[in-house]
């Protein structure tokens, strides 16, 4: 009992406030999250491959950038499996935003093809 109370107090869980550092428990960090793209690894071919596999049409190409719409992404991981060296799990589960446009991210493409 004392253990749980101390643990809670240390982590700020037993409180009427939200933990300042965000949720740290394993169930929270294990949630599926939208992808994060590794800089310098997203060339035109990787971009077109992840656009092709995305089942939610959350990715599309716009000029020299890959556009990720978090509002449409289902965090299914298909893009991560299609290009594991270029795409990672972002780990961001607190995704709410005040403006819709904030959820649309531009990922600049690397110039040379690979």
């Amino acid at each position: 009992m004392a253990f749980w109370t101390l643990r809670g107090l240390l982590r700020g869980v037993v409180t009427t406030r939200y933990p300042a550092a965000g949720p740290r428990d394993q169930w929270a960090t294990a949630l599926p999250t939208p992808p994060r793209f590794v800089e310098g690894h997203v060339g035109p071919d990787v971009a077109s491959r992840v656009v092709a596999v995305c089942p939610s049409r959350a990715l599309w190409l716009d000029g020299d950038a890959l556009v990720l719409d978090l509002g449409a992404c289902t965090a299914c991981g298909a893009c991560r499996r299609a290009a594991p060296h270029a795409v990672r799990e972002s780990g961001v589960s607190e995704l709410a935003a005040l403006r819709r446009a904030d959820l649309v991210k531009r990922i600049p493409l690397r110039a040379s093809a690979r």
Partner: peptide
């Protein structure tokens, strides 16, 4: 976020990572 007790965290996040 709706009641102003937390800020938006994705606004500044570019969703890219350094290699």
């Amino acid at each position: 976020l709706a009641v102003g007790r937390l800020g938006a965290k994705v606004t500044e996040d570019p969703f890219t990572a350094t290699a």
